[in-house]
Write a protein that binds this DNA or RNA. Structure first.
Lengths: 355, 355
DNA sequence: TTTAGCACTCGGAGATGTCGAGTGCTAATA
DNA sequence: TATTAGCACTCGACATCTCCGAGTGCTAAA
């Protein structure tokens, strides 16, 4: 985009004023900041409008940035906003207070961003498949009750209590342990076929479906270790913005955001830690065509990745939001102990269990 | 409330018409249903207004039920709406599809109600304290890694992976098992004092903080077994109702509903399985003073109780919503296997206890 | 006791008028 | 040549006004 330096300064001033006030920006409003007369600015504005970077709601209203204008602003003109010491302090404090369990790490982070930015925020966990089981343990509680404990590749531990009316004895438990630890470890859930289960059943002499129950749990545990879950925070904030004062419009977008399956289809940044900005019509979803999305991705340890997306009007404070998301990405990585795997943090409870 | 039968019929007609149309009800609108002339109804309406059961937005608009009017309607006039076969079928279907994990049982039920009623629904788990540990098990993974498995009073199982740089051997694990199973079972978390931990440390000859870690996990597990969590579904639906077309109003109530701590303070029905209705100013919370809440409570097995609350304008279809909530209460009880404890249901995917 | 009729009230929708912010264009100026 | 001041013009926002009709309360007749 080869436009004069002065045009860029004017475009930036318009974007920033409009982001702040939500009112179309007139030539007078910014002439003092730029040291030019309003007439000059009017001429420049007319040219920017011709280039498609600005729009006029109607003759003789001020100018408003077009989607293209925002795009230029984001790509070239946006000041790198770094958070103030005050802000990082507050963010850090809030982060430390909230994040106690890994289960809800992303959801909590989302709520945090929503609180700070006053935009709705969605959080997605995007687990990768390929998880495997490292080890099975069995605890015989009584003749009818068995606890199965599974340790996954990434040190996650899952358990399940099973009841068997037929009764179980120590010998069977030992057999189960041998069979599962040799036959089911190192497999992905797709590899745990029906044949495999049948083979194990005969090996254990099990006709009560015990093997099948355990295998079912194993598969479920693997699938659940990499879930795709969606959370939404700060939905109410959307109504704060004049763009969504029309209840119909607000409702449409809220309904969209409340629909997990739709959120799952939203694009992710190309690289973890990056921030991706989608402006207005750049969004594929019809419902978002006059809104913008700023989305960042986080490594959550292991193969699990998380997405955090801020949704708002195209008149969004892109610089501010990018800054928050980037900062959070950094902090979360520190929180997670560098390259650490999941369970190391996962401790509400005290204790020296951190490596 | 001793009013004539005819007045009751008129009041009921007004409430039901207003619930449906959201427009003030004129005398003509209901005269055909009641077989009376509009003039007669006008006279009766005037008296009902004097009694404080109806209100007039302004002279020569129709009448609108007052909060008191709704109260009379709910207490005395409401038809016992029973769901149609079609409706129960759909509800049941949806229930069976969604509810796969106990973790989110309530949240799922809430989403279900939200979908069916088109009102926002909050779900609260209201765990009771007093949970105890029945049994400890320890699995030694390798010299530095120990899995602790705790079985709670209500058959919930929790586990945690602990790392100890100093190293552990079989003998120590056996000692731990003895000490914890004799010393820590049957206690509430408040009874697990520092002294007790110290005593056990000396008993085990542990100077590495292993006992302290395990005890810490035990306390956390107990606290977490009875969490107070809040979920909100269907927030967007509130904008469908004309009462909340004013974005400010909608935002105020949405913000209220998004605030977990505030939801926690909402009242619960006196008995499990009952439905409680709070109309307009009967709500203590300022933000809800012109809204109504219909709330039901459910036994979720063990000592854990759940609340499901539907929030909407005072012009709410109380009969319909009560019916849905009651039906769901019955169904959930069946789902949970009568008086059964939690895990018996969980025979699909894994239990509510992973970390 | 119920009903029909009638004058009255008041909110809502539409039409009209005014105001002012902002524009484009032109001519003067550095 | 680039910038600026001035001016006529446009058009939305807002206030005012009018009119319409739904719904009321009251009265008199059935």
């Amino acid at each position: 985009m080869d436009i004069s330096d002065r045009k860029k300064r004017i475009l930036r001033a318009i974007v920033e004023s409009y982001v702040e006030t939500a009112e179309p920006v007139g030539s007078k409003a910014i002439c003092s900041d730029l040291g030019l007369s309003s007439a000059t600015i009017r001429n420049e504005m007319a040219e920017l409008t011709a280039l498609g970077l600005l729009e006029q709601p109607h003759t003789s209203a001020g100018r408003v940035p077009s989607s293209k204008g925002y795009r230029v602003y984001v790509n070239e003109l946006m000041h790198d906003r770094t958070l103030s010491a005050q802000e990082t302090f507050e963010l850090n404090n809030a982060l430390r207070q909230r994040i106690t369990k890994l289960d809800s790490l992303l959801a909590d982070a989302g709520r945090l961003v929503a609180d700070f930015t006053h935009y709705p925020v969605y959080a997605l966990t995007a687990g990768s498949s390929g998880m495997k089981i490292r080890r099975f343990d069995f605890i015989l509680v009584d003749r009818n009750t068995l606890i199965v404990v599974i340790m996954l590749d990434n040190d996650q531990v899952k358990n399940k209590l099973l009841h068997f009316p037929a009764g179980i004895d120590e010998a069977l438990v030992r057999k189960l342990s041998t069979v599962f630890n040799s036959g089911f470890t190192g497999l992905e859930s797709s590899e745990m076929t029906h044949e495999l289960v049948s083979a194990c059943e005969t090996a254990c002499g099990d006709s009560e479906g015990i093997v099948a129950s355990v295998a079912g749990f194993a598969i479920a545990a693997l699938d659940e270790a990499a879930p795709r879950q969606a959370y939404l925070s700060g939905a109410a904030s959307i109504l704060e913005h004049p763009e969504y004062r029309d209840p119909d419009k607000a409702q449409r977008i809220l309904a969209y955001l409340s629909d997990d399956t739709k959120l799952m289809t939203l694009p992710a940044p190309d690289e973890s830690g990056e921030v991706k900005i989608l402006i207005g019509p750049e969004n594929v979803a019809e419902e978002l065509s006059d809104s913008s999305v700023v989305v960042a991705s986080y490594d959550l340890g292991g193969d699990v990745k998380g997405l955090l997306g801020v949704v708002g009007p195209t008149r969004m404070d892109y610089a501010n939001i990018s800054a928050h998301l980037s900062y959070l990405a950094r902090e979360l990585r520190i929180f997670l102990g560098g390259a650490g795997t999941l369970p190391q943090l996962g401790s509400g409870p005290p204790g020296p269990d951190e490596k």
